Each structure stands twice: as C-alpha cells, then as structure tokens.
Computed example of a mutant assay.
Amino acid sequence: MDATDESHSDKTLTRLRTALRAAMRHRDRAAVSGLRSAMAAIANAEAVNITGAPPAGAIETSPVGVGSTEVARRMLTHADVHAILETEVAEREQAAEGYASRGSQDQADRLRAEATAIRDALAS
C-alpha cells in the first residue's frame, strides 16, 4: 500500500466519523446504527489473523513488558475499505427486501435508511 492509498482510506474513515457525529446530533438512530456497524466492520477487517500464532506455553516462557505482545493491525487499502462498505450496503438492502416481502415494512425502512447513510458517507 502506498501513502496515497493510505490517505484515501483515512479520508473515508474521517468521512464516516463526521457522518456519525452529524447523525448523533440529529438523533438519527438508523444512520447512527448503520455508520457504527460499518466502522466496526472496517475495524474487524483490520484485525490480525491469529491462525499462524504459536500455541500458548508456560507462563515463564511468555513475553513480558509493556507492548511485548502487541501486533500491528492490518493496513487496508482504499479498495478494501470501499469493498467492505459496499458489502455493508448490499447486505442491508438484501435484508430490507426480505423484510419487505414478509410484511415488516418498518424494519425494511430502517435497513434502507442505514444503507443510505453508509452510501452517502461513502459518496461524500
């Protein structure tokens, strides 16, 4: 990942945070829920894969000291962040269709509002 790509993903996260603050000020529950969920999805994608980690051993062989077990989070590209957000939008729209087809229009509307909030933050 180059510096330009990193700055684009940082700008996207900044836009999400700005949109979240605005939604909270306007008490827009659906937007707050959707934006928080989208930011959590990005944070989860940045988590380090631990499948290759060595098994736990005896306490006396464990690393000690501040930060001795810290691992850098994965760096996501702008394309990665964009794909995660598009997936979040698509999942909400698909679920909204399912709710609407079963007559739960209120839940469908809430999911569509969440999808719109994420899409708007992505587009801005």
Results as ranks from 00 to 15, higher is better:
residue 1 M to A: 13
residue 1 M to Y: 04
residue 1 M to F: 02
residue 2 D to W: 02
residue 3 A to L: 12
residue 4 T to I: 09
residue 4 T to P: 00
residue 7 S to H: 04
residue 8 H to C: 03
residue 9 S to C: 04
residue 11 K to M: 02
residue 11 K to F: 01
residue 15 R to Q: 15
residue 16 L to V: 09
residue 16 L to C: 08
residue 17 R to E: 14
residue 18 T to W: 00
residue 19 A to R: 05
residue 19 A to Q: 11
residue 19 A to S: 15
residue 20 L to S: 01
residue 20 L to A: 01
residue 23 A to K: 10
residue 24 M to P: 00
residue 24 M to L: 05
residue 25 R to W: 04
residue 25 R to Q: 09
residue 26 H to S: 14
residue 27 R to H: 14
residue 28 D to A: 11
residue 28 D to L: 06
residue 28 D to E: 05
residue 28 D to N: 13
residue 29 R to D: 08
residue 29 R to P: 00
residue 29 R to V: 12
residue 30 A to L: 06
residue 30 A to M: 01
residue 32 V to I: 11
residue 33 S to V: 09
residue 33 S to D: 10
residue 34 G to Q: 07
residue 34 G to L: 08
residue 36 R to K: 11
residue 36 R to P: 02
residue 36 R to V: 12
residue 37 S to T: 14
residue 39 M to W: 05
residue 40 A to C: 03
residue 40 A to L: 11
residue 41 A to W: 02
residue 43 A to R: 15
residue 44 N to M: 14
residue 44 N to F: 06
residue 44 N to E: 14
residue 45 A to W: 03
residue 46 E to S: 12
residue 46 E to Y: 04
residue 46 E to L: 05
residue 47 A to G: 06
residue 47 A to I: 05
residue 48 V to L: 05
residue 50 I to A: 06
residue 52 G to M: 06
residue 53 A to N: 12
residue 54 P to L: 07
residue 55 P to R: 09
residue 60 E to Y: 05
residue 60 E to C: 03
residue 60 E to I: 06
residue 61 T to S: 08
residue 61 T to V: 06
residue 61 T to L: 02
residue 61 T to D: 14
residue 62 S to R: 12
residue 62 S to L: 09
residue 64 V to R: 12
residue 64 V to G: 07
residue 64 V to I: 11
residue 65 G to L: 11
residue 65 G to I: 14
residue 65 G to H: 03
residue 66 V to F: 09
residue 66 V to P: 01
residue 66 V to D: 14
residue 67 G to Y: 01
residue 68 S to I: 02
residue 69 T to F: 06
residue 70 E to Q: 10
residue 70 E to Y: 08
residue 70 E to V: 09
residue 70 E to D: 07
residue 72 A to L: 08
residue 73 R to P: 05
residue 75 M to H: 13
residue 78 H to D: 15
residue 78 H to A: 14
residue 79 A to Q: 12
residue 80 D to V: 05
residue 80 D to E: 12
residue 81 V to C: 07
residue 81 V to H: 08
residue 83 A to C: 02
residue 84 I to W: 01
residue 84 I to N: 01
residue 85 L to S: 04
residue 86 E to N: 10
residue 87 T to P: 00
residue 89 V to F: 01
residue 91 E to P: 00
residue 92 R to V: 01
residue 93 E to M: 07
residue 93 E to D: 07
residue 94 Q to E: 13
residue 96 A to K: 08
residue 97 E to H: 04
residue 98 G to E: 10
residue 99 Y to T: 03
residue 99 Y to I: 08
residue 100 A to W: 13
residue 101 S to G: 07
residue 102 R to I: 10
residue 102 R to T: 15
residue 102 R to P: 03
residue 102 R to Q: 15
residue 103 G to E: 11
residue 104 S to Y: 13
residue 105 Q to V: 14
residue 107 Q to Y: 04
residue 107 Q to V: 04
residue 107 Q to L: 12
residue 108 A to N: 01
residue 108 A to R: 03
residue 110 R to Y: 13
residue 111 L to F: 05
residue 111 L to G: 00
residue 111 L to V: 02
residue 112 R to I: 07
residue 113 A to H: 03
residue 113 A to N: 00
residue 114 E to Q: 13
residue 114 E to N: 04
residue 115 A to D: 04
residue 117 A to I: 11
residue 117 A to Q: 10
residue 119 R to M: 12
residue 121 A to P: 00
residue 123 A to L: 13
residue 123 A to I: 06
